[in-house]
Amino acid sequence: MIADGTAHIRIARPSRDLAAAERFWADGLGLTVLYRHEPAPGAPPGEHALLMLGQPDAAWHLELVHDARSPVEPRPTVEDLLVIYLGGEVPGDLVLRLENHGGRRVLSHNPYLEEWGVTIEDPDGYRLVLSTRTWSNRQPR
């Protein structure tokens, strides 16, 4: 089966600190906590804490995991991006709120993204790009 336009997408990443990640993604960006799981004391090895964020009506969500017994260190590169197309100016108060909730504004590695948006690192070093552009599935030929 081929994934079509209705397929749900999960972006899964390790996190050092789910509370810090929640402050950035939920309190800073405004995503909704869709699901949360904390392993019970004495849970078997491999069971991890989980935080799912997104919007209830969206066909995607961001899943952040942390295994306190065997943590996986996030290893983002400058090309590990989550790009959100705003279709207009990036609100300055949103950038400030993201910075106040653990984010750090950085220069984009890609000049195109730097010209058309704002890049902010989350507490784990992954990059969020708020683009002034509008996404279209009709690419120029």
Rank of each mutant, 00 (worst) to 15 (best):
L128K: 03
D17V: 01
N137E: 14
R13T: 01
H101E: 01
A12Y: 00
W135D: 09
R75M: 01
L51D: 04
R105L: 02
I120H: 11
E47P: 00
R127P: 01
R127Q: 08
D93C: 00
D57P: 00
M52Y: 06
L29I: 04
Y85M: 05
P44D: 11
V78M: 06
G92V: 12
A19R: 14
L96Y: 10
L107C: 00
R36N: 01
R10V: 14
G117E: 08
I2G: 03
W25C: 01
V33L: 05
H61S: 08
R13E: 04
G42I: 04
V95C: 02
I120E: 15
L113K: 04
S15Y: 06
S108D: 15
H8Y: 07
V78G: 09
A12L: 10
R133V: 08
A49M: 12
G87V: 06
D27S: 15
D27Q: 13
V72A: 05
G88P: 02
E47R: 10
S131W: 15
L62C: 08
G88E: 04
M1Q: 05
H61E: 10
V129I: 15
G54F: 13
A7V: 06
A59R: 14
P91L: 05
M1W: 10
L31M: 13
S70A: 14
S15L: 10
D27A: 15
A20W: 03
D93Q: 03
D4A: 05
A20P: 04
A49T: 02
L81D: 03
L53N: 05
A20Y: 03
V118N: 02
D4G: 12
D124F: 06
W116S: 05
H8E: 14
D4L: 01
A40Y: 01
I84E: 06
L98Q: 00
S131I: 14
P111E: 12
D122M: 12
W60Y: 12
G102I: 04
R133E: 15
H61Y: 11
D17M: 01
E38A: 03
Q139K: 13
L64K: 00
D57Q: 07
L53W: 02
T134A: 13
R133M: 09
G88H: 13
A12D: 12
R10N: 15
N137W: 14
V83F: 09
H8A: 06
H61G: 01
V65Q: 03
T134G: 12
R36Q: 10
E114Y: 13
T77M: 07
D4S: 04
L96W: 11
V78Y: 06
A12R: 01
N100S: 14
Q139F: 12
R104V: 10
S131G: 04
V83E: 13
V72Q: 13
T132W: 02
G28P: 09
D17S: 04
Y126K: 01
A26K: 13
R10H: 15
D122T: 03
E89Q: 10
G5I: 11
L50N: 03
W135N: 08
W25A: 00
L34I: 09
Y35F: 11
I120V: 15
G54D: 11
